[in-house]
Computed example of a mutant assay.
Amino acid sequence: MLTKRTLLLGGLAGGLLALGLPAHAQGRYPDRPIKLIIPFSAGGQFDIVARMLAQFASTELQQPVVVENVAGSGGNIGAARVANAAPDGYTLLVLGGNHAIAKSLYAKPGYDVTKDFSPISMVSITPHVVLVNAAMPIHSMAELVAYAKKNPGKLNYATPGMGTSMHLTFEMIKAHYGVDITHIPYRGGANALTDLSGGQVNLGIIGIAPAQEFLNAGRIRALAVTSKGRSRALPNVPALSEVGYPELNAGSWLGIAGQRQMPAEIVARWHGVVRAFQDSPANRQRMEEMGFRIEPTTAEQFQKFIASEVEAYGKIVRDNKITAD
């Protein structure tokens, strides 16, 4: 016969047992909406791919994946927010080359890209495109170099931000061709493109996808892409390797990551979602049309890639004496 004391002791034991279970074991993941932080403004290349992935993931996971743009400090503000969130799989980061650069560029970026995240998978990579306002008398890289040398210090170029991969790539281009062009950093590619198309700046270096609308409207012109070969999205635009810079092969990569202590089963769940997204013929076709190349990786491969990018970009920052002040 059960006594009141027995019931009380049984309830206490059950409560203690529940308290001892890991948080992720107490319910099915996911059981509520997931937040995907894009550390740049809306309309840029990160935003385009992340929103495609979020829509796909919402169906796969049967929970809303809500995109939130947290721009500022070259992607550091959004990354730091994710690094300091609970490692429960409900706040994820769109991770990119800017975060690998930040380790060398900033004294205190607010996170350590090699230690504070659980890399899930790379998603895609795309070359940058060198652009010019349509009113400028420049139609090729040769004309750009000639104009810049005749007018040292008078041209300027827009990027999505200080220390971004676009910024470092254009600084390499300047050094290679021996030209003096002033950097104008913006908070995101969309803002840079708006001012470039309006003539507030002369040149720009942005991802292909967000630039296409402005290119199609004839408000800007593409001079070159920064990959070894031409992009399927801009087949008539030469690669820099064709116009005097054969060793350059630069671009923007994008991946997904969670916090350092995120459970392995949640990493695996999201890795499966990303791989399904990449394997979809419709997604693959749409991505390629916009200039993105699908890049499947394991979580371990992605982690090694991030470390290699930290080392490579760190050398560029040091060699060019670039600072974030």
Rank of each mutant, 00 (worst) to 15 (best):
G78Y: 01
M166Q: 14
E60G: 07
L16F: 14
E143H: 11
A13R: 09
A264V: 13
T159F: 06
V243C: 11
L53T: 08
F56S: 14
L2C: 06
A312E: 12
A264W: 07
R286L: 13
G229R: 15
G10T: 04
N156G: 09
V145K: 05
S140H: 03
A57P: 08
V132W: 06
N98H: 13
L53S: 07
G198P: 00
I294R: 02
A50T: 13
Q62Y: 01
V243A: 10
F170E: 03
G251L: 06
A18Q: 08
D180R: 10
G207Y: 00
T159W: 06
G258R: 04
I125L: 11
T226R: 12
I34S: 00
F40S: 02
S280Q: 01
A25M: 08
R260W: 05
L12D: 02
G198K: 10
N283Q: 07
P137H: 08
S121D: 03
K304P: 02
G314L: 07
E295C: 04
E309L: 05
T91D: 11
A175V: 02
A71H: 02
V113Q: 06
I208M: 06
N84H: 15
G10Q: 05
A23W: 12
Q62S: 11
V130G: 05
G74V: 01
M262D: 12
S124Y: 13
R260A: 14
I184K: 13
A276M: 04
D195N: 13
L131R: 02
V201P: 05
P281T: 01
Y186N: 00
A158T: 04
E68H: 13
S118N: 10
L196Q: 10
G251S: 10
F56K: 14
L16I: 13
T169H: 14
P87L: 01
E247V: 01
P30N: 01
G97K: 00
P160V: 13
T226I: 14
F46A: 13
V132M: 07
I220C: 09
R318E: 07
I77T: 15
V123Q: 07
T126F: 12
A80K: 09
